[in-house]
Amino acid sequence: MNIVVCLKQVPGTTEVKIDPKTNTLIRQGIKNIVNPFDTYALEEGVRLKERFTGKVTALSMGPPQAIEMLRDAISVGADDAILLSDVAFAGSDTWATAYTLGKAVEKIKTCDLVICGRQTIDGDTGQVGPELAEMLGVPFISYVSKVEEISSGVMCVHRMVEDGYETIEATLPAVITVVKEINTPRLPSLRGMTRAKSAQIPTWTAQDIGIEKEKAGLAGSATQVVKVFFPQRTHHAEMLKGDPETQVSALIEKLREAKLV
């Protein structure tokens, strides 16, 4: 079984700080990491390969630096990796991203299953997976929390829903997105790291995957960012002062006045 896992390199955003003087993101010291949700997708790909034999290809669209992330993917079990990188891809929205990934998957040809994380931590949209499935015209299952079985071209999975889980069947090829409950990603192995160091990771450009310029990047995006700003807050709380006893009784009084307790 040939599995493609989509990965995105993102800034470790929980550490994001804003420079109060310039009001911009402080990028120094922010390491780029693989989108945490994608690590579950990669691990599941490797586990499925181990269960049912096959091959795992890690696929990412991003800047040339993302190649290091793809090496890390090989060190935890991906067999090979492909980077989609081209200035023409800049400014892609989810539709253009899904379109580009879809073209790459078509070029890979023998793909039985595409696995994505449920969302990225920078964009937070969760749209690329479902849109990719439509681009490829294949079945789609989101929020997969367990792969029960894959046999004779049919996969059976658990899909997490708000009040439980569903058991769903789909024919392959298919696209799934996985939730973090599905597994615990492994750490790299020494042999994997050695293999990753010397691995040849091709970079495919728009031309390589047959994308016309008007369909890539910003030109191919239906949505456009027109304004980016920082949430401004000028309001300040009414501070309750004094020793703890005074503070607590003042608070209770306020809450009673407002009939909140």
């Binding site: 993101l25 920078d122 937070d124 980016v228 920082f230």
Partner: peptide
């Protein structure tokens, strides 16, 4: 919100 809510983006779909 984007970037974990650190930045707000206004987006349009013009075409």
């Amino acid at each position: 919100p984007t970037f974990g809510g650190n930045i707000m983006a206004t987006i349009i779909c013009p075409l």
